[in-house]
Protein backbone atom coordinates (compact mmCIF):
# COMPACT_ATOMS: atom_id res chain seq x y z
CA UNK A 1 0.00 0.00 0.00
CA UNK A 2 1.27 3.45 -0.88
CA UNK A 3 2.13 5.66 2.08
CA UNK A 4 -0.13 8.53 2.89
CA UNK A 5 0.81 11.59 0.86
CA UNK A 6 2.46 14.49 2.61
CA UNK A 7 0.53 17.63 3.24
CA UNK A 8 1.88 20.80 1.59
CA UNK A 9 3.80 22.89 4.11
CA UNK A 10 3.31 26.62 3.97
CA UNK A 11 6.45 28.76 3.94
CA UNK A 12 6.43 32.53 4.23
CA UNK A 13 9.58 33.52 2.44
CA UNK A 14 12.32 31.88 0.46
CA UNK A 15 15.51 31.67 2.57
CA UNK A 16 17.99 34.42 1.75
CA UNK A 17 20.88 31.93 1.52
CA UNK A 18 21.30 28.70 -0.40
CA UNK A 19 23.33 26.91 2.26
CA UNK A 20 26.37 26.86 4.52
CA UNK A 21 30.01 25.92 4.04
CA UNK A 22 32.32 24.80 6.83
CA UNK A 23 35.29 26.99 7.63
CA UNK A 24 38.79 25.67 8.33
CA UNK A 25 41.26 23.29 6.72
CA UNK A 26 40.62 20.00 8.44
CA UNK A 27 37.06 19.75 7.24
CA UNK A 28 37.42 21.10 3.73
CA UNK A 29 38.03 17.74 2.02
CA UNK A 30 35.18 15.99 3.71
CA UNK A 31 32.91 19.01 3.36
CA UNK A 32 33.38 19.08 -0.39
CA UNK A 33 32.45 15.45 -0.78
CA UNK A 34 29.38 15.21 1.34
CA UNK A 35 26.41 17.47 1.32
CA UNK A 36 23.61 17.58 3.83
CA UNK A 37 20.36 18.80 2.34
CA UNK A 38 18.21 20.76 4.70
CA UNK A 39 14.64 20.81 3.39
CA UNK A 40 12.75 24.08 3.05
CA UNK A 41 10.21 22.96 5.64
CA UNK A 42 13.02 22.14 8.09
CA UNK A 43 14.53 25.58 7.57
CA UNK A 44 11.10 27.16 8.13
CA UNK A 45 10.46 25.16 11.32
CA UNK A 46 13.78 26.31 12.73
CA UNK A 47 13.07 29.91 11.74
CA UNK A 48 9.66 29.90 13.39
CA UNK A 49 10.76 28.13 16.58
CA UNK A 50 14.19 29.54 17.30
CA UNK A 51 14.24 32.83 15.41
CA UNK A 52 10.65 34.02 15.78
CA UNK A 53 10.48 32.24 19.17
CA UNK A 54 7.08 30.68 18.62
CA UNK A 55 5.86 27.53 20.32
CA UNK A 56 5.42 24.37 18.28
CA UNK A 57 1.65 24.78 18.55
CA UNK A 58 1.75 28.31 17.12
CA UNK A 59 4.28 27.44 14.43
CA UNK A 60 2.41 24.38 13.16
CA UNK A 61 -0.67 26.52 12.51
CA UNK A 62 1.40 28.92 10.39
CA UNK A 63 2.79 26.05 8.35
CA UNK A 64 -0.67 24.40 8.18
CA UNK A 65 0.47 21.02 9.43
CA UNK A 66 -0.29 19.09 12.61
CA UNK A 67 1.65 19.67 15.81
CA UNK A 68 3.30 16.20 15.89
CA UNK A 69 4.36 16.59 12.23
CA UNK A 70 5.88 19.95 13.04
CA UNK A 71 7.83 18.49 15.95
CA UNK A 72 9.15 15.71 13.70
CA UNK A 73 10.28 18.20 11.03
CA UNK A 74 11.90 20.37 13.70
CA UNK A 75 13.72 17.40 15.25
CA UNK A 76 15.02 16.36 11.83
CA UNK A 77 16.22 19.93 11.18
CA UNK A 78 18.21 20.00 14.41
CA UNK A 79 19.64 16.57 13.74
CA UNK A 80 20.85 17.62 10.29
CA UNK A 81 22.37 20.87 11.53
CA UNK A 82 24.11 19.08 14.39
CA UNK A 83 25.54 16.49 11.98
CA UNK A 84 26.80 19.23 9.66
CA UNK A 85 28.40 21.09 12.58
CA UNK A 86 30.08 18.13 14.22
CA UNK A 87 31.24 16.37 11.08
CA UNK A 88 32.10 19.56 9.22
CA UNK A 89 29.86 18.98 6.23
CA UNK A 90 28.35 21.41 3.80
CA UNK A 91 24.69 22.14 4.08
CA UNK A 92 22.38 23.20 1.27
CA UNK A 93 18.81 24.29 1.66
CA UNK A 94 16.69 22.60 -0.99
CA UNK A 95 13.61 20.52 -1.72
CA UNK A 96 10.74 19.50 0.47
CA UNK A 97 7.02 19.52 -0.03
CA UNK A 98 6.29 23.20 0.32
CA UNK A 99 4.47 26.16 -1.17
CA UNK A 100 5.23 29.83 -0.65
CA UNK A 101 2.75 32.26 0.80
CA UNK A 102 3.30 35.73 2.19
CA UNK A 103 1.47 37.78 4.76
CA UNK A 104 -1.75 39.53 3.75
CA UNK A 105 -2.97 42.95 4.78
CA UNK A 106 -6.34 44.63 4.53
CA UNK A 107 -6.84 48.36 3.94
CA UNK A 108 -9.75 49.85 5.86
CA UNK A 109 -10.23 52.82 3.49
CA UNK A 110 -10.53 51.16 0.09
CA UNK A 111 -11.31 47.67 1.53
CA UNK A 112 -8.71 45.97 -0.63
CA UNK A 113 -6.51 43.04 0.34
CA UNK A 114 -2.87 43.09 -0.52
CA UNK A 115 0.15 40.94 0.23
CA UNK A 116 3.70 41.82 0.90
CA UNK A 117 6.21 39.83 -1.15
CA UNK A 118 9.37 41.60 -0.07
CA UNK A 119 9.77 40.97 3.63
CA UNK A 120 12.73 43.31 4.12
CA UNK A 121 10.88 46.42 2.98
CA UNK A 122 8.47 47.89 5.51
CA UNK A 123 5.07 48.84 4.17
CA UNK A 124 4.01 52.37 5.00
CA UNK A 125 0.78 52.75 3.10
CA UNK A 126 -1.78 50.88 1.08
CA UNK A 127 -0.48 50.33 -2.48
CA UNK A 128 -3.83 51.37 -3.96
CA UNK A 129 -5.15 54.39 -2.05
CA UNK A 130 -1.96 55.28 -0.08
CA UNK A 131 -3.89 55.23 3.16
CA UNK A 132 -2.00 54.33 6.32
CA UNK A 133 -5.10 52.74 7.74
CA UNK A 134 -4.41 49.05 7.16
CA UNK A 135 -3.93 46.01 9.34
CA UNK A 136 -2.57 42.51 9.06
CA UNK A 137 -4.93 39.68 8.27
CA UNK A 138 -4.45 36.71 10.57
CA UNK A 139 -3.96 33.52 8.61
CA UNK A 140 -7.00 31.29 8.39
CA UNK A 141 -6.51 27.82 9.80
Amino acid sequence: MAPRRKRMRRIFNIPTIKGFKPYGNSCSQKGKRELISLLYEEYESLRLCDYEKLTHAQACRLMQISRPTFTRIYASAREKIATAFVEGKQMIIEGGKVYFDSEWYRCSDCSCHFNHPDKEAIIENCPLCHSTNFHKVESES
Partner: peptide, 12 residues
Protein backbone atom coordinates in the same frame (compact mmCIF):
# COMPACT_ATOMS: atom_id res chain seq x y z
CA UNK B 1 3.27 35.40 -7.97
CA UNK B 2 4.73 35.15 -4.49
CA UNK B 3 7.90 33.49 -5.72
CA UNK B 4 8.20 36.08 -8.51
CA UNK B 5 7.86 38.82 -5.86
CA UNK B 6 4.89 40.41 -7.59
CA UNK B 7 2.54 42.10 -5.16
CA UNK B 8 -1.09 41.02 -5.34
CA UNK B 9 -3.83 43.54 -4.62
CA UNK B 10 -7.32 42.13 -4.42
CA UNK B 11 -10.28 44.50 -4.50
CA UNK B 12 -13.99 43.76 -4.22
Amino acid sequence: LDSLKIQMISIK
